[in-house]
Amino acid sequence: MSKYILKKEKVVDALNALGNANAVYIPVKNKRGLVEYKELGRDAAAADAKFDCRPDVPPKAILFPQTQVLFTFKKVDGKIEVVPTEPDDREKIIFGVRPCDAIAIAVMDKVFIGGKFVDTYYKARRERTAVISIACDGPADSTCFCPSTGGSPAATEGSDVLLYDVGDSYYVEVVSDKGRKILESLSASLETPSPEQEKRKDEIVRKAEAAEGFTRSITAESISKLDSSFDSKYWDDVSRRCLSCGACTYYCPTCHCFDINDEPGRKRVRTWDSCQFSNFTMHTSSHNPRTAKAQRLRNRYYHKFKYSKDNTGRYLCVGCGRCIALCPAGLDITKVISEVK
């Protein structure tokens, strides 16, 4: 694996250089004070990049936009012609991704590209997207629990390049060919790591492997209790405080439920939806399989930790902790799963 050093003082130049040939997305603080990914040169300046925290909003929307026009249609001589939306074919780089969010992209790849049906819109964006991540030096936030879901603060899955913060520089590790090509374009800014920098990087990896500093966790044993707790009264108790607001699903890097509707202007649009909304599963007959809050909340936890695992072999949760940090009712997924009965 090739390794380099990128001095922090050169990061702004490097970002701008990448921005010449790519749409580059970086985490910046938005007007509401939340850190989210914005496009360099369009909505953000390289100097505003915030690389010292877990962004409040994951980069999900770059690959899976909140609103996606699937097609428009027109009438030519009274006959309908469907015009599919041109796939977004700009080369993209998401820079400064946390390892959990990079893994989330790998998980989303399974949903949208894996399996029998390929999602054309997601795939078009994904194929043209490179992920440059920054390893976390211990948990980035008190709500983090990535090691419990198979992740790690220094995980490489889903990333093309992984950076380690070794003080005044980033230690740069190439993970994929895509990453190698991007670094080639930056070669003028890259140096060779010193033994001291190697040691700092090794220390970050050691801490990550030992899951040092994490205060939250979910054990495999509590997850296995889901096998027999579906009909438990526990879900009624646990969901009492839930507002069914869907914040947990909107901020989650792996939640991907959507709706499809025709809108004025002769277009069909896909929009994010949430399994926490009461009309999500409502039949035309008004029968609703998940009419109660408890049923909907249970569906989310079961989807994350059981259905997805059973169907695809992996959890639909990467332990980023956002749903804990942003839940207005204070629900904590690690607590909910740990206390299942």
Binding site: K116, F117, H256, F258, D273
Partner: peptide, 19 residues
Amino acid sequence: LENKMKCGIGKCGRCNIGG
């Protein structure tokens, strides 16, 4: 069986009965 469906291709997350 019938459930509310939007995508038909296992992605929109709407029609599941358990897994």
